[in-house]
Design a protein around this nucleic acid. Structure first.
Length: 193
DNA sequence: CAGCAGATTGACT
DNA sequence: GTCAATCTGCTGC
């Protein structure tokens, strides 16, 4: 298993990283408990020119500050006051590109995920639920993705391009024309196991 | 400083 | 299908 390095994150933009991260494993080791899932759906947020991004127009707030950090850190923020959304910051310092991980397929620690979510049937099909299953909270905002808490591994799973569905992003209608850009990537449902 | 809308989810009618 | 939960940051008084 190869943990992705800092150089990996800074050397590709959000759209490219979003596509490449499909099939890779998102792993957390929180309080000594390991949980992991294959990334099955992502969205790219392409910096200051992307109206759907928190960093649109170069906006900089206490919450999105970490988007301006150099690639290879986690951007975790709260949406609607309830849901934690997990993003991977890519490219260089002051270039706020990020990849939103929208869905995973659990491969390790499913029992822990069930306990964390307090449910019988495990669902990780949404950006808010996958963070809950993996134990990611806002406390992990800015976490180094090459550290010992949260990281992404190449587990040898290859996703052929023809199995990747590309489409417009979800829930960003307010972004006008930018909402139509093909920045959403997911593995074809028939290939999720 | 008060009010509102948002990269969502899950429970209820 | 509709609606509440509940935090951050922006807009307007």
């Amino acid at each position: 298993m190869v943990k992705l390095s800092t150089s990996y994150y800074v050397s590709r933009n959000a759209a490219k990283a979003a596509q490449e991260l499909l099939g890779r494993a998102l792993v957390t080791n929180i309080n000594g408990v390991r949980t992991a899932g294959l990334i099955t759906e992502t969205e790219a947020y392409m910096g200051v020119q992307d109206r759907a991004s928190h960093a649109y127009g170069g906006r900089r707030t206490g919450r999105n500050e970490v988007m301006y950090a150099a690639g290879g850190v986690a951007y975790v923020y709260l949406c609607y006051g309830i849901h934690h959304l997990f993003n991977v910051v890519v490219l260089d310092k002051d270039v706020p590109h990020a990849v939103l991980v929208r869905a995973i397929h659990p491969i390790e620690g499913q029992g822990t995920m069930l306990a964390r979510r307090g449910v019988k049937k495990l669902t990780t099909g949404g950006p808010g639920t996958l963070t809950q299953a993996l134990g990611i909270r806002t406390a992990h905002n800015g976490e180094d993705l090459t550290g010992q808490l949260i990281w992404i591994e190449d587990v040898g799973v290859k996703v052929p391009k023809k199995h990747i569905i590309i489409g417009p992003r979800i829930g960003v209608d307010y972004a006008g024309e930018d909402a139509l850009l093909p920045y959403r990537f997911r593995i074809a449902p028939s290939h999720l196991l």
